[in-house]
Amino acid sequence: MAAPAKAQPTAKEWNKDVVGWNLGNQFECSAPGQDGESMAIGMADNSIKAETAWGNPVVTKKTIKAVKEAGFNAVRIPIRWQCHITNPTAMSIDKAWLARVKEVVNWCLSNDLKVIINTHHDKWLEGRPTNQYKDENNQKLALLWLNIASEFANYDYRVAFAGTNEVHIKDNWGKPEAENLAVQNSYNQTFVDVVRATGGNNAKRHLLVQTYVCNPDFGINNGDFIVPTDIEGNGNDYMSVEFHYYTPWDYAGECKYNFWGEPYKAKGEASPNDEKTMSEFFDKVVSTWSNQGLGVVIGEWGVTDRQKSGQTDLIHENMTYYCHFLVCEAKKRGFSTFIWDNNSFGSGSEHFGIFDRNAGMKVKAPWVLQGILDGKK
């Protein structure tokens, strides 16, 4: 994929009007026979089959084309690398796995979709943000991104890199210690340094750096998040801050409430967080990061499905309303958004499916898609 003649866009330009989709539970799976929480680095038997290890079919051209035709203009591809490492000392990546990742990235580009690739569920990195492992992990992270960035150095500006994912102490999603925050900040700086050092289009590649556990609350307050130093001449122009936004969790994730938003408070018990809460928070993101020249990427967001006898249609209508409001508010502030789709359908937590990958990408949550597309307008 040769670079286009035009200059690399800034991060803000890259994010403008981007309404994206996550290829969830696909390339970030653990390899067959490997514990999903394993810290082990190295090839597992049949690691190339990791793509289908969590029950999804292989990604095809049709998968990506369907996403484009539905109205999305970008794809985030979460990727676990640890079970595809052929030489742990050099963090070398299995050529077959790299070829497969490139194949799907190329399908996205051929549909003129922007792409984000990251490190996702690399447990040695995500699960040990402590001083004990800080130096070791930064060394491994540098080698890993040296290998990834070198492979993609000639890819054009549509491909962006994200250094980490939801880094947190295992089983603890709560408030971090200062030590944990400092380790996440060190990961971000290592990532930026090594990608820039590979040159080519990577010198001005759009790079995404993350708040601790991708929770914006652990980045936006009290100086918890330190903006990495980019190479001379770049400033903050080619970096975005990424956070995830399943907010409010009591509505979007755990289904404590079936309704959200002022117009629906009379329909049933609704989350105390509403439109004002979201808008004010997004404004705080602008004043904290956008006003420093940084882009903003909501790398994951979503609202899980739920059904209730006699109210399912109204609940789905409310989900449309939530999706529309979030995408619209994010878009007008210049944030890119990437809806989480894990191909899981049903009622209750973790049912974020939109396209049924086992049924030719049939849309099974049209109420979610409608809200996103209405918000995109």
Rank of each mutant, 00 (worst) to 15 (best):
P4H: 14
P9S: 03
A11V: 02
K12L: 15
W14I: 00
N15D: 14
K16G: 06
V18E: 06
W21Q: 07
F27A: 02
P32M: 06
D35V: 06
S38H: 04
D45N: 07
S47I: 00
T52Y: 04
A53Q: 07
A53P: 02
G55W: 09
P57A: 09
V58Y: 08
I64P: 12
K65A: 08
F72L: 05
V75A: 02
R76H: 05
W81S: 01
H84V: 06
H84P: 04
P88R: 02
T89R: 09
S92M: 01
L98I: 01
A99I: 02
R100A: 09
V101T: 09
V101S: 10
E103T: 12
N106Y: 11
L113C: 04
I116W: 13
D122H: 03
W124D: 00
W124N: 01
G127W: 00
Y133K: 04
K134E: 13
K140E: 06
L143R: 11
W145V: 08
F152R: 03
A153M: 03
N154F: 15
V159A: 14
E166P: 01
V167G: 00
H168V: 04
K170S: 10
K170W: 13
A182T: 06
N188F: 02
Q189N: 07
Q189W: 07
D193P: 07
A197F: 07
T198F: 06
G199W: 10
N202G: 05
L207P: 01
Y212S: 05
G219Q: 03
G219V: 00
F225W: 10
F225A: 05
I231L: 10
N236S: 09
N236C: 11
Y245R: 10
Y246M: 03
P248D: 02
K256R: 14
F259S: 01
E262L: 11
K267Q: 11
A270C: 10
P272Q: 13
D274K: 11
D274M: 07
S279V: 14
F282C: 11
F282H: 10
K284Q: 11
V286A: 11
V286C: 09
W289N: 03
N291L: 01
L294R: 02
G295N: 04
G295A: 05
G299V: 06
V303N: 03
T304E: 00
T312P: 07
H316W: 14
M319A: 07
T320K: 03
C323P: 09
H324I: 00
V327Y: 08
V327D: 13
E329K: 12
K331E: 05
K332Y: 04
S336W: 08
S336G: 13
F338I: 08
N343A: 12
S347E: 07
G348L: 04
S349K: 15
S349Y: 06
S349C: 08
E350S: 09
E350L: 11
G353L: 08
F355S: 02
F355G: 01
R357H: 08
G360F: 09
M361C: 13
G375M: 01
K376M: 08
